[in-house]
Nucleic acid binder design. Sequence first.
DNA 1: TAGAAAATAGCGGTAAACCACTATTTAATT
DNA 2: AATTAAATAGTGGTTTACCGCTATTTTCTA
Lengths: 211, 211
Amino acid sequence: MPIKLAITDDHPIVAKGICNILRDAANVEVTDIYANGTALLKGIKERQPDILLLDMHLPDVSGPELAASILKNYPQVRILVLSSSDVIFQVKKMLKLGCMGYLLKDSDETTILQAIETVYKGGQFLSPALNQLLIEDMFRNKKSEKKTTTLTRREKEVLQLIIDEHTNQEIADKLFLSLHTVENHRISLLHKLEVKNTAGLVKVALQTGLV
Amino acid sequence: MPIKLAITDDHPIVAKGICNILRDAANVEVTDIYANGTALLKGIKERQPDILLLDMHLPDVSGPELAASILKNYPQVRILVLSSSDVIFQVKKMLKLGCMGYLLKDSDETTILQAIETVYKGGQFLSPALNQLLIEDMFRNKKSEKKTTTLTRREKEVLQLIIDEHTNQEIADKLFLSLHTVENHRISLLHKLEVKNTAGLVKVALQTGLV
DNA sequence: TAGAAAATAGCGGTAAACCACTATTTAATT
DNA sequence: AATTAAATAGTGGTTTACCGCTATTTTCTA
C-alpha cells in the first residue's frame, strides 16, 4: 500500500512540481491537492492522508492555525511543513505544534522523498540547513541574567511559589513567614524585575529561565 | 600569546588528564586548576582566564550558579562546560546562561582542542552527540494544544493582554468592552486552562506557546 | 568590626482579581 | 428553523494583590 500524500500549496507550480517528482516514486501516491486552507479543511474531512505536505504561507488561513486544527481533529495525519522560509521562529512554532518535519522548498528530489519516508515511518525530518540554525538559536537565546541574578534567595523562593499559583498567604504558611514578609518580597520582585503585576512576574521568570 | 585556560573539576584525574592533553598544545596555557566552586570564585578574582573549563557537577556550588555568577562579574571569561552528562535539560540551561560551549568528558583530544579554539575565537561549540539530541528535543517539546485550541478568539485576545500586564479595566478599554465582559472571559480562561489565578494563566500560555 | 544588604514584621489603605450567578444578543452549525 | 456556542453585560460580594511607609534582626562582606 503506497503512502497517501496530500499537498496544500497555493502555487500550482510547486504542487505540480512535487507531483512530478513523486510520480516516479512507486510507494507514494498523491491523493489530494489543495490550493488553500479552506479547501484543505473541507477535503480532509472526507479523506485523511498519511502525510500532509503543508505550505507555511497560504492566502486564507495561517500555517500554524491549520496545523493546530488538523492535528487536533486528525492526530493520525503527519504534517510535513513545506516552506521557503527558514525563519527559525516559524520553524520552532510548527514543530511545537506537533508537525513532524520542516522541508525547505529548495530541497532536491532525494531530500523530499527522504523526508516523506522518514516522517511516514514515524520519524522527524528537518531540512539539513535548519539543523545548524536551530543549534545557533540555542546559543542566541541567552536570557539577560542581569535581573534574575540580583534576586535574593528568599525572593527566588517566593517567585517560584507565585509561579506555582500560590497566594501570599499560602506562601507565608509554606515558608513559615508572616504574610507581610511575603508581601514585601513580592513587591521587591515587582520592582527588581520592573513589571507591573503577577502576570509580569511569571512572564519574566519563565522567559529568563528562572524556573 | 597563548590562550589562558582555567580548569575547574573535582576529579584530579580529569583535571590532570586535560592538562596532559594540553601540554602539547603550544597555544594553550593552563593557568589555574580549581577543585571546587569556592576555590574558583576566590581565584578568579585575582586572575581571569580567557576560557574556563567548568565541570557541571562540583561538590559545593552547582554548575548553573557558578556560571551565572562568573558571567555576571567577569563577562569576558568564556565558559566551556565540561560534563559527563548529556541530559538535555542541563545543556540547555547552561547555554541559556551564556556558556559558549558544552563538552562531553568522553571527547577525544582533537575535539577538546577544537572546542577550546572555537570558543576562544568567539564561536560556540557543542559535542557532536549533543547536536542531534537538541534537535530531537525540539520535536519532543510538543505542547499539548488540547487546552489552548479550545480558546475562543476573544479569550485569546484577553489572555494576550493579561500577559502584557494589563488590568481588566485596561483590557476593557482597549477592546471597547465592559469590565464585566472582560472579567467573564478571564474566569472562562481560568476554568478552561484549569488554573487558579493570573500566574497560572500566564504560565500555561507561555508554556503551551500561545504567544 | 563597622556598614550594607537581606530577611523579617508591621500598619493603613486602594485597586484589582476572583467567584457565582443571571441574562440578552450574535454568530455558527445542523 | 432550531440548537449551540460565543460574546456581551450585569449584580453583589469576597479575597487577594498592590503600594508606601517604618522598623528590627540577621547575615554578609569589605
